[in-house]
Design a binder for these strands. Sequence first.
DNA 1: CCCAAGACCTGGCGGC
DNA 2: TGCCGCCAGGTCTTGG
Length: 271
Amino acid sequence: MPELPEVETTCRGIAPHTEGQRIQRLVVHDRRLRWPVPAGLEERVKGQDILRVERRAKYLLMRLPGQTLLWHLGMSGSLRLCSPDEPRRTHDHVELQLASGQVLRYHDPRRFGCLLVFDGEDLAHPLLEGLGPEPLGPDFDGDVLFRLSRGRKAPVKVFLMDASVVVGVGNIYANEALFRAGIRPDRPAGRISRERYLGLALAVREILAAAIRQGGSTLRDFVNGQGEPGYFQQTLAVYGRGGQACTGCGAALVESRLGQRSTVYCKYCQR
DNA sequence: CCCAAGACCTGGCGGC
DNA sequence: TGCCGCCAGGTCTTGG
C-alpha cells in the first residue's frame, strides 16, 4: 500500500480536480472499512464544496466548510478520478460524484483503509493526535531521532516506523533509508550516536523526496489520482531484493524479520 | 512508558 | 488444474 509518497502523489493528483468542486452525491457501496463509514455521511456532505485537499502523515484531509473528510488508504487502497460511465469494479467501495461530472472512486480490496469525518478544519480527530513531525517538514531532524531514541531497546527500524516519532516512514522506505544511512536495521535505537541519526534523518528526507518526484512506488497496482503507475520501484536498493547483490559492495543482501515486517539489508555496508 | 504480538481483510504466488 | 499455506504497502489494540 501506499506509503507517504504514494499518498502525497494521490493528494497532488486529485487536488486540481476536486478543490473548488461541489459534492453532488456521495455513494457508499460498502461501509465495512477498517471502521464503518459513518451513518448519514451521504446527507452530511451532499451539496458541500471541497475547499482544499491536504495530507497529514498518510491521511488525506478533504476540507469542507466546517467539517473535514478523513481518508486513509490502508494497505491496498487507492483514490482515482473516473468518468461516471466507467463501470464500477469489485472493491470500489465509495464514490464521490462531483459537479464537474467526474467521479472520485475509493478502491480497497483489503478494506484496511477508512473514511471518517470530523467537525472543524484543524486536526481535531483522535487519529491525528500524538503524531510526530512530517519527515519533509521543518520539525524533523536527526536531533529529534536522537533525543526520542535514548533508552529505547527496540530495533532502529521499528523505532523509525513509529508514527509518534516521525510519520510516514513505512516498511519500504525504512529499509531504504537505513541502507542509505549505512545503519543495520536491528541495531537498538538507543545505541546509535547523534551523528549517525543526523545521517539517517537526511536519508529519510532524500528517499521520500526522490520517491515523490518519481510519483511513488509501483506496488501491485498502485495508481495515482489519474490512474497512472509510479516509477520509483526500479530505484529501490534493498526492499524486495533479499538474496540479490548489494548495489554498494555486491554481497548478497540479507532478508530477515523485525517487528513482523520483512527487512532487507547488507551486512557489510550497514553497521 | 516500552515492547511484542494479535487483529482487521482479500488476493496473488509458490509448492505439491 | 486445484487446493493450501504464506505473504503483502498500515496501524490500532491488547496484554505483559
